Structures are given as C-alpha cells and as structure tokens.
Amino acid sequence: MADDAADPLERTILDLLDQRAADASICPSDAARAASPDDWPALMQPVRDAAARLAAAGRVEVTQGGAVVDVTTARGPVRIRRPRH
C-alpha cells in the first residue's frame, strides 16, 4: 500500500484512488464493496466518515455534482477524488 493511513477504510479509499487515473474519482460504495463485498451497505456511513477524515487532512476531496463539498453535511451521492491543485 502506497499510503500510510492507519484506518483500514481510509487505506481502502486511497488504494482504490491509486489504482485509477490521476483525475479519476470513486464512489463511497466502491470502497465499501472492496472492504466487505458481502456486507458493504453497512459500511456506507463509515466510508463517508473515513472520507471526511481524509478530506480534513487534505488527502482527498469529496465532490457532488463536480463541486467540492463537506461530506459531513452533503446529502445524496458523492464522489471521492485526489485533491486538485
């Protein structure tokens, strides 16, 4: 694993982003399914929480409709991507 995130869900998010093109994004359900294929729906909120921690650390951005949003207040589908500078 290329990133040093301590939380397994954070590592899963970062690993999935590493496997994609530099400008690609993932859906939180991608990370949930990768972490637990048989019980992924139960991981949707924990994945969003992990994305929030990564976003607060500046390691990812969470978007909705292409705009960066705060995943803790965003309602509905979001995407996770590497920061665009």
Rank of each mutant, 00 (worst) to 15 (best):
D3W: 06
G58K: 10
Q64G: 07
R59S: 06
I26V: 15
G66L: 04
D15H: 11
A56T: 10
A34E: 01
P8F: 10
L17T: 13
L54Y: 09
A22N: 07
L14V: 06
D23T: 15
T73W: 03
A2S: 13
P28F: 05
D18S: 15
A42M: 06
R84K: 11
H85F: 05
A67K: 05
D39R: 13
D30N: 15
D3F: 11
E61C: 08
S36H: 11
L16V: 01
R84P: 00
V71A: 09
A55T: 13
D3R: 11
P8T: 03
P83K: 09
R79K: 09
G65I: 06
M44F: 03
M1K: 04
H85R: 13
Q64L: 09
R82V: 00
L43D: 00
T12W: 01
C27L: 15
Q19V: 01
A55G: 13
D70R: 12
Q45V: 07
R20C: 12
V60F: 06
G76P: 01
Q19R: 15
C27V: 08
L43W: 00
E10I: 09
D3H: 14
R75E: 10
L14T: 04
P77D: 05
A42F: 06
H85V: 03
I13S: 07
V60N: 02
P8L: 09
V60E: 00
D39F: 12
T63P: 05
V62C: 14
D23W: 13
G58H: 10
M44R: 14
E61G: 01
A56K: 15
V68F: 09
Q64R: 15
A31T: 04
I80A: 04
R81F: 03
Q64P: 06
A35R: 01
R79N: 07
R75Q: 09
A52F: 07
A56C: 04
P46A: 08
R75I: 02
D23P: 09
A74R: 05
D4S: 06
A67T: 03
D49H: 09
D38T: 15
R11I: 00
D3Y: 10
R53P: 00
R53T: 00
A52R: 11
G76M: 06
A22C: 05
P8D: 11
D18W: 11
W40K: 03
D23M: 12
L16S: 07
V69A: 03
L16G: 10
V47E: 01
D4Y: 10
A24M: 10
I80L: 07
P37L: 08
A56Q: 13
A67I: 02
S25F: 13
D7T: 09
E61Q: 15
E10H: 08
I80G: 07
M44E: 14
R79F: 08
D49N: 13
D7M: 06
R81H: 06
L17Q: 08
R33D: 00
D3C: 03
T72N: 08
D4Q: 12
A50T: 00
M1G: 14
D39M: 07
I26W: 04
T72I: 00
A6D: 14
G66N: 08
I26N: 11
G66F: 05
T63M: 09
M44T: 08
S29F: 05
A51L: 04
D30Q: 14
A31D: 02
R33W: 13
I13R: 03
R53M: 01
D7S: 08
C27G: 09
V78M: 06
D23L: 15
T63A: 11
S36F: 04
S29K: 11
D70K: 02
A31G: 02
